[in-house]
Design a protein around this nucleic acid. Structure first.
Length: 156
DNA sequence: GCCAACGTTGGC
DNA sequence: GCCAACGTTGGC
């Protein structure tokens, strides 16, 4: 069915992290890991839409300011285990599990993204404080090209 | 419901 | 260190 195919097609995301806190390299070392600590409603709502098998880029903030690799969603949203009792009275926060899939052959700096006409509408540029965001397929593919990193051989 | 004050994120 | 762009809090 067409509608089912559409909803089951893998979506594409971008996750931001401070590499000093938890980097893509850490994720490679640790294997499938929780992505937690999201305390922003818009970001949370995106987390809730993530499906197992979806792909997500990892963006390093701070000194690096680059997209550095590809991850895959391994477990869909479940309650954030670090939610404090004070927080849980007010709202529900969630985490997902992701695993590293592939490092970019060439990381894609923020500067390159800014200078790429095809990427000018990326939420990364429009909402600088958002840490979880969706990407369109064309944005995803454009960044893969800039990274010199094909998806071939990666199975969802 | 409005708004001022304050806090946070993240680039510069 | 500064600032823009939010988000949150609390008084009214």
């Amino acid at each position: 069915m067409l509608s089912q195919q559409k909803t089951s097609a893998p979506a594409h995301w971008l996750l931001k992290t401070e590499p000093e806190e938890f980097s893509f390299t850490d994720l490679i070392k640790k294997g499938p890991s929780p992505w937690d600590g999201i305390r922003n409603y818009q970001a949370r709502n995106f987390l809730l839409k993530m499906k197992k098998g979806d792909f997500a880029f990892i963006y390093h903030t701070g000194k690096e300011k680059s997209i550095v690799g590809i991850t895959q969603i391994k477990k869909e949203a479940y309650p954030d285990l670090k939610t404090t009792s004070a927080e849980s009275k007010k709202s529900e926060w969630f985490q997902i599990d992701v695993s590293a899939i592939k490092s970019f052959i060439k990381p894609v700096p923020l500067e390159t993204i800014k200078n790429s006409p095809h990427l000018k509408n990326m939420l990364l540029l429009k909402q600088t404080r958002l840490s979880v965001m969706p990407l369109s397929l064309s944005e995803w593919n454009c960044i893969l090209n800039l990274a010199h990193t094909p998806m071939e051989g990666l199975h969802p």
